[in-house]
C-alpha cells in the first residue's frame, strides 16, 4: 500500500529539528532509519502529517568514549555498532545485540535511537539498554534532560519521551572490573524480531562469584523489563548450577507474558527461562 499524504522536512541541525517538531508535536513524527515507522505508514496504521528526517544529521551518528562513559548518537545504525572495534573491546554486548537485529538491509538503515524511542515490545535494543543501565538524553523545546532506561520504557510502544522531544544520545557507563556480557535471542522466523531476547551483564569478584548482575528481557511482555528477581538470585552466588537454575526460573515472575499466534504465554516464559540460563552461562564464560 501507499502511505497517506504527508509533509517531509529535512532539518540541518538538531535545534532546527526540535523547532520543526514544536510546530505540531502530535501530528509530526521523527524519521530516522524508518524501519518501523515507514511500514506502519504504508499500511496506514500511522498517518503523521509531517515527517522530520534526522537520519541525515551526521553529527548525531557517533560512537565515542568519554572518560568513564560510552556515548552513542541516536542515529547511529545497528551496523555501525555491530562493526565498532571500540565497542567489541569495551562493551561487547552492544555489537552482539546489533548483530542479532533483522537482516543486513535493516541493520544498515535502522538506528539505535529509533529502536529505543519506538519501544517495540520485541525490539532488541531496549533489553540491552536496561541491562547496561543506559542513560537516555532527550532534547526538547525546554532543553535537555536525562532519563534512565529503567524509567524510560513505560508500556507497549510507550516511553517517557514527551511530544516535542527527540532522543539525542545513549550514555552507558564503561563496564569495569572483571565483567562478562551476553545476548541470547530466539528470533521470529519471519520477522527476525525477538520472540524472546535476554541481555545479561555480570560483574565478578576476584574469586569468580557474582558481584553484580543485570538482566534485560525483551519480547516477553508489553515492554522490555529488568528481571530483578533473577538478578537478586545471581548476586553473591558462585554461579553454580543451583544458582543458575534458580535465577533462570524467576525470569517471568510477576510478568504478564504476551500471547500471539506464534507463541503462547507459557511457551514464551519457557523460552525465556531456557535462554536466560544460556545467556548467564555465556556471560560467565565471556568474563573468564
Amino acid at each position: 500500500m501507499i502511505a497517506a499524504q504527508f509533509d517531509y522536512k529535512v532539518p540541518k541541525s538538531l535545534n532546527e529539528a526540535v523547532s520543526l517538531l514544536a510546530a505540531d508535536p502530535d501530528g509530526s513524527k521523527i524519521l530516522a532509519g524508518g524501519h518501523s515507522l515507514i511500514p506502519a505508514m504504508k499500511l496506514r496504521l500511522a498517518q503523521p502529517q509531517v515527517l522530520i528526517d534526522i537520519a541525515r544529521l551526521k553529527d548525531l551518528a557517533y560512537i565515542r568514549e568519554d572518560g568513564s562513559q560510552i556515548l552513542i548518537g541516536a542515529t547511529t545504525t545497528h551496523y555501525e555498532i555491530e562493526s565498532s572495534e571500540l565497542l567489541k573491546q569495551i562493551c561487547p554486548l552492544l555489537p552482539a545485540c546489533a548483530a542479532s537485529i533483522g537482516d543486513v538491509q535493516v541493520r544498515n538503515k535502522g538506528t539505535i535511537g529509533g529502536s529505543i524511542a519506538h519501544s517495540d515490545p520485541a525490539g532488541d535494543w531496549p533489553a540491552a539498554a536496561l541491562a547496561l543501565h543506559a542513560q537516555l538524553v532527550l532534547v526538547g523545546p525546554n532543553g535537555e534532560r536525562t532519563v534512565s532506561a529503567d524509567d524510560f520504557f513505560i508500556d507497549l510502544l510507550t516511553t517517557d519521551l514527551q511530544p516535542g522531544e527527540i532522543l539525542r544520545e545513549i550514555r552507558i557507563a564503561r563496564p569495569s572490573g572483571k565483567f562478562g556480557q551476553a545476548y541470547q535471542k530466539v528470533p521470529h522466523p519471519a520477522s527476525g524480531f525477538a520472540v524472546v531476547g535476554v541481555a545479561v551483564h555480570l560483574t565478578l569478584k576476584a574469586d569468580g562469584s557474582c558481584e553484580a548482575a543485570s538482566v534485560g528481557v525483551t519480547g516477553v511482555a508489553a515492554k522490555a523489563y529488568r528481571a530483578t528477581d533473577t538478578e537478586a538470585a545471581l548476586v553473591n552466588s558462585t554461579l553454580d548450577e543451583a544458582a543458575l537454575d534458580s535465577a533462570a526460573s524467576q525470569v517471568c515472575t510477576g510478568v504478564d507474558a504476551n500471547e500471539d499466534l506464534f507463541a503462547s504465554a507459557d511457551y514464551r516464559c519457557h523460552l525465556a527461562k531456557v535462554h536466560t540460563r544460556r545467556a548467564i552461562v555465556s556471560a560467565k564464560a565471556n568474563a573468564a
Binding site: L43, L45, P121, A122, D155, L156, A222, N258, D260
Partner: peptide, 17 residues
C-alpha cells in the same frame, strides 16, 4: 483486517493496556 495481519503480536498487549 490490516491490524490483525501485521499487528497480531501486539493486539493482546494493546487490549490489556
Amino acid at each position: 483486517g490490516t491490524i490483525a495481519s501485521v499487528g497480531q503480536r501486539m493486539i493482546q498487549s494493546t487490549v490489556k493496556m
